[in-house]
Amino acid sequence: MKYKDYYAILGVERNADADQIKAAYRKLARKYHPDVSKEPGAEEKFKEVKEAYETLKDPEKRALYDRLGTQQPGHDFRPPPDWWKQFAEHQGAFEGSFEDIDLADIFAGLGGRRRSARARGGPVPIAGEDYETVVHLTLEQAARGAEVDLQLAMPEYDEMGSPRRVMRTIKARIPPGSTDGKRLRLAGKGGEGANGGPNGDLYLTVALHPHPLFRVDGHDLYLDLPIAPWEAALGAGVEVPTLAGPVQLKIPPRTRAGRQLRLAGRGLPKPGGGAGDLYAVVQIVMPSVLTEKEEALFRQLASVSTFNPRGHFAEGGHR
């Protein structure tokens, strides 16, 4: 079992009173709460802070924690035998190794079981904890739907009520139509309930991997479409990639740079039916090297053309 210094996590002295502990928690909770903080690692930090507060705000849990003494944070340790005896008064006997036990599960389990022990007429059902995780998808997976393996460490309780961290692989089918930040729910795939209580749920947040060609806005996709100056001037038929394979796109004559050509229904599918669009954003690209003949033709064009792309400069910017 790894030792966690709950006092250091909250930034308080070991003799801090309840008000000081509460004030320290509130300050850190505002800073790291995952619903409001964008700091990297805020969620993990908040979990630590909350775990420390949940233990230290409860006099019974705090006393039990204090009896563990001071250890080096993160180092493996074994609670003294008399500590476990005191814990067992609340919890029941414990057998087995301490290796895969998380200190948080011990104190969290203590609260739930204490409530159930106090209840009359048998143990009270305790619902399993809800979990949240991020599921990373490629754009192709988001478009077609995907089956993904999610690995989560969740506490499980043996017959004696002792907690143990177990690595679970949860398979989830993500239906077609995900967009960045989209949320989904897997019913009953969170933590296990106790005493006949229901399992918790697993909440998923979709994060799309950046695509080398397509940029995403909701269900619409944007693709940079490089074309040659003569294709822009004369129009052309070009092949463009889509998520479902290449399609032909007609470039109209006299197409300007930055023009968006829409391919209807070629974006990401929508859960309710239909699909977003794909926009090809025109970029007019010059060859980096011109042959003698190409250069001669451009010179010829320059000599006959009356086109002045900067004509509006003379009119103070008014076109």
Binding site: V166, K171, R173, I174, A187
Partner: peptide, 15 residues
């Protein structure tokens, strides 16, 4: 390690 059978995740949206 426990492995579960794949389940369909449900959208949390306007539908």
């Amino acid at each position: 390690m426990r492995v579960d059978i794949a389940e369909e995740a449900l959208w949390l949206d306007e539908q």
